[in-house]
């Protein structure tokens, strides 16, 4: 167990003792490597000198109904030192921890999987953690809470309505029948799994809903994420025909799929690249096919 390092050393000695006079491969490699390291170091120092002054400015929406001076929405500027690879979330965290600890936004995973930090960044719904500052070409970055949602404070919006819509489509697996043996799995075709794959990636970030004009005008519209959730189950062959019929009935209600006017805004902003509009269209076709349309 503890011989790891010794073995490494043994290897080096063998290398060197094999050719005591000429330069050994190991030495050559190390010499080359040192040159490379030197070159890289020079480059790094260069870059640092170049960029040491580089900063970016965030223009951040602020609002707190309870705090004097913040009841009226306003924008605050934060100047943040830029480094390569910096995301909008990094810049927000920097601003909060260095300038104003009351700056409020949701975040947790830092890797585009918890869906907490969908924001309106330079006029578009994006996840702050997945947005590289270098990819935004504006000098100033404007950060606002998701449009069409009620603002709780600063960048935090009320997600209750979004959750209600998600839950309205009975978002849970509910097979007509299960194998009797509790150790036997249901079978599912690879193809079928492939079919639902994209739809299962939703992280409930709410970006799609916020980008949708229809949802903005019709508060009861289920919205792209919820319809996609319904798609995920309706298309899953493990559930069975009966359940599928029930699911189609839910999504073709008055505020369901037929509201969608295929503007693709949801598809454009979805950070998980879910083809939302396509899924909605496919459900419309399924509904027609089933002759169950009553809008």
């Amino acid at each position: 167990m503890s011989t790891i390092e010794q073995e490494t050393e043994t290897e080096e000695t063998t290398d060197e003792s094999a050719e005591p006079t000429v330069e050994s491969p190991g030495e050559r490699r190390r010499a080359e490597k040192q040159e490379r390291a030197q070159a890289r170091e020079d480059q790094r120092v260069d870059e640092e000198i170049d960029h040491s002054e580089e900063t970016i400015t965030l223009k951040v929406f602020r609002y707190d109904p309870e705090v004097e001076g913040k009841e009226e929405p306003r924008f605050d500027d934060f100047t943040v030192p830029f480094h390569k690879g910096m995301t909008v979330l990094d810049a927000l965290i920097y601003s909060r921890d260095h300038y104003d600890s009351s700056l409020t936004f949701r975040h947790s995973c830092r890797q585009a999987v918890c869906g907490s930090d969908a924001l309106f960044i330079n006029g578009r719904q994006r996840l702050a953690c997945k947005t590289q500052i270098a990819d935004l070409d504006a000098g100033t970055i404007r950060i606002e809470p998701l449009p069409h949602q009620e603002v709780v404070k600063d960048l935090v919006v009320d997600m209750e309505h979004f959750y209600d819509q998600m839950e309205a489509v009975e978002p849970y697996f509910d097979a007509d029948e299960l194998p009797d043996d509790e150790l036997e799995e249901q079978r599912q075709d690879r193809e079928n799994r492939e079919k639902i794959k994209m739809s299962t990636r939703c992280i409930w970030c709410g970006a799609c809903m916020s980008s949708c004009n229809i949802a903005a005008g019709d508060n009861e519209y289920l919205g792209p994420a919820a319809i996609n959730k319904a798609y995920r189950f309706a298309m899953d062959e493990r559930e069975g025909e009966q359940r599928k019929q029930e699911r189609l009935r839910i999504i073709e209600q008055e505020h369901g799929v037929w509201r969608c006017q295929t503007q693709f805004s949801c598809t454009e902003v979805c950070p998980k690249d879910i083809p939302l509009t396509e899924h909605i269209q496919e459900l419309k076709r399924e509904a027609v096919k089933n002759n169950l349309k009553f809008w």
């Binding site: 849970y172 097979a175 299960l178 799995e185 079978r187 599912q188 690879r190 799994r193 639902i196 189950f233």
Partner: peptide
């Protein structure tokens, strides 16, 4: 563990599949 894993399959977990449709 086996029973728990099959149970989440029964709850709809979209596991990757083999050609025969098994997990």
């Amino acid at each position: 563990a086996p029973e728990e894993v099959v149970q989440i399959e029964h709850w709809g977990m979209p596991f990757s599949r083999e050609d025969d449709g098994r997990v």
